[in-house]
Structures are given as structure tokens and as C-alpha cells.
């Protein structure tokens, strides 16, 4: 009985999702054909799919893709390392956290793209300014997530570490890192999304290569199907990165509950 009810619920949910997708597509096609917008502004989904397949076989597109991928990966790597270091410092030392964490929080709430003019002066219009904006964007969620994670560690674990005379490195390897897998995963996922935004927005503003530049070129040619196909690819890249990081950070993490059991 319960199984039948749960299967019926699952089929209802699936029906809703199918209706959702169909409605979005139907509204898109109807709006495009309605004449409410300029011709070609909302192209048919078939045209977008054709542009998508054309891009898949275009080596120029893959060149842009490679540049963007490199910028995001490098910026994300630099921002994550710096963010983890800052997060550990803010979280492990209560006083340092009280002094600097509000500053990091306030800066995290600012639009990072406004720093782009400074980064353009410092690093030029090449990949340097894109990588630096991606790293800067990624730094804040990473450090705040880690700092909150460090503070949430059961103090009993830290006292056990003190009793066992663990060195700082041993405490990081045996207590902090295993307990920090969940906030690390959250910080990495948020950081990746924001690093993607940082790299792409700086490409859109001023660059001569990358997916953001390719999308704006398509916009300038009024080749809207290609522009939308590139946007879909960018969203797919961000989504896949987010999913992969979530899976990877979960998999190799040592189970802290097995290593140090709380005396509950």
C-alpha cells in the first residue's frame, strides 16, 4: 500500500517536471512567434539546437572554450588555496576571526566585477585579469565557509588533540581536515560558481578570446541562436563543475567519525 502510494507520488512528480519543461519550451516558442518581440530575438529552440551542434564541430569555439576553462580552473585554484588558508586562520584563532571576519563578510557582499578596472590596469586585458577576478570572487565564499566550519568543530576533538600533544600540522591533518570536508565542499561549490561568473563577466567586458567574448561577438552579429547556445554551454559547464566538485570532495574524504569518535 505504502509502496503504491510512493510510486504514485513519484509519477505525479515526474508528470509535473514534464509539464514544467514542456511549458517553458511552449512559452518560449509562442513568445518568439507572437510578434511581441523583434524578429529573431527569441529564436526557435530548433535553431538554437542547430547552432549548438555547429559549435560542437567548430575548432574556433573549442579554442574559446579552452581559454575560458583555463581561466576558471586557474582562478578557482588560486582563490581556493588562498581562501582555505584565510578561512583556517580566521577560524582557528578566535581573535583574528573577530578582527577580520566582518571585513571579509562585508567585502563578500560587494559586486566583484567593479574591481575589474583595477585588475585590467594591473594585469592587462589578457587572461591575467580574468584569472585574478575569478580568484578574487572565489576567495570570499571559500574563506567564510571554512572559517564557519572550523568554528563548528567539536571542541572535544581539539582538547583530545591537545592532550595527545599533536603539532599544528598533525592537528590540521587529523582533526581539522577530516571535519572540514562538508564546509570545504560547500565553499568549493560556491567558489566555483562565482569564479565562473568572475571569469566570464570579465571576458564579456573586455577580451579578445574566451566564451564570454564569443557570446558577445555573436550578440554583435545579431546571431542570437549562437549566443544562446554559448550561454547554454556556459551553464552546462558551471553545472557539471558544481556536480563534479560535490562528488569528488565527498568521495576521498576520510570519515571523521571513524577516526575520532565523540564520547557520546
Amino acid at each position: 500500500m505504502a509502496l503504491a502510494s510512493s510510486m504514485s507520488r513519484a509519477s505525479h512528480v515526474m508528470t509535473y517536471r514534464l509539464i514544467g519543461v514542456t511549458t517553458i519550451l511552449a512559452v518560449w516558442e509562442a513568445a518568439g512567434a507572437s510578434g511581441l518581440f523583434f524578429r529573431g530575438v527569441l529564436p526557435s529552440s530548433i535553431l538554437i539546437a542547430k547552432s549548438f551542434w555547429r559549435l560542437m564541430g567548430d575548432p574556433v569555439f573549442w579554442g574559446h572554450f579552452g581559454v575560458t576553462f583555463f581561466e576558471i580552473a586557474t582562478g578557482f585554484g588560486i582563490g581556493s588555496v588562498l581562501g582555505v588558508a584565510a578561512g583556517l586562520m580566521l577560524g582557528m584563532n578566535r581573535y583574528t576571526g573577530k578582527v577580520f571576519e566582518p571585513v571579509v563578510e562585508y567585502l563578500a557582499a560587494t559586486p566583484k566585477v567593479v574591481f575589474l578596472p583595477i585588475l585590467l590596469i594591473l594585469f592587462g586585458i589578457g587572461v591575467g585579469s580574468k584569472i585574478s577576478l575569478a580568484a578574487l570572487s572565489c576567495f570570499f565564499p571559500m574563506s567564510l565557509s571554512l572559517a564557519a566550519g572550523v568554528r563548528a568543530i567539536n571542541p572535544m576533538f581539539l582538547r583530545v588533540g591537545q592532550t595527545l600533544n599533536l603539532t599544528l600540522l598533525q592537528r590540521i591533518a587529523m582533526i581539522y581536515l577530516p571535519a572540514l570536508i562538508p564546509p570545504l565542499s560547500t565553499g568549493l561549490r560556491l567558489g566555483f560558481g562565482i569564479a565562473t561568473v568572475g571569469a566570464l563577466l570579465s571576458e564579456i567586458k573586455l577580451s579578445n578570446k574566451g566564451l564570454g567574448h564569443a557570446a558577445m561577438q555573436a550578440y554583435a552579429r545579431f546571431d542570437i541562436p549562437t549566443m544562446l547556445a554559448i550561454l547554454i554551454i556556459i551553464f552546462a559547464l558551471a553545472g557539471m563543475g558544481n556536480y563534479l566538485i560535490g562528488s569528488l570532495v565527498k568521495l576521498p574524504g576520510p570519515d571523521s567519525s571513524r577516526r575520532i569518535k565523540s564520547p557520546s
Partner: peptide, 15 residues
């Protein structure tokens, strides 16, 4: 909520 929604701005620019 986790998607880079701001990257949709060229679409709104066209619309």
C-alpha cells in the same frame, strides 16, 4: 540559486 544567473544578461539585453 547556485547557477551563474548574471551570465544571462545578454539575453535580457536582446529582449
Amino acid at each position: 540559486a547556485a547557477a551563474p544567473l548574471v551570465l544571462l544578461f545578454p539575453l535580457f539585453l536582446v529582449l
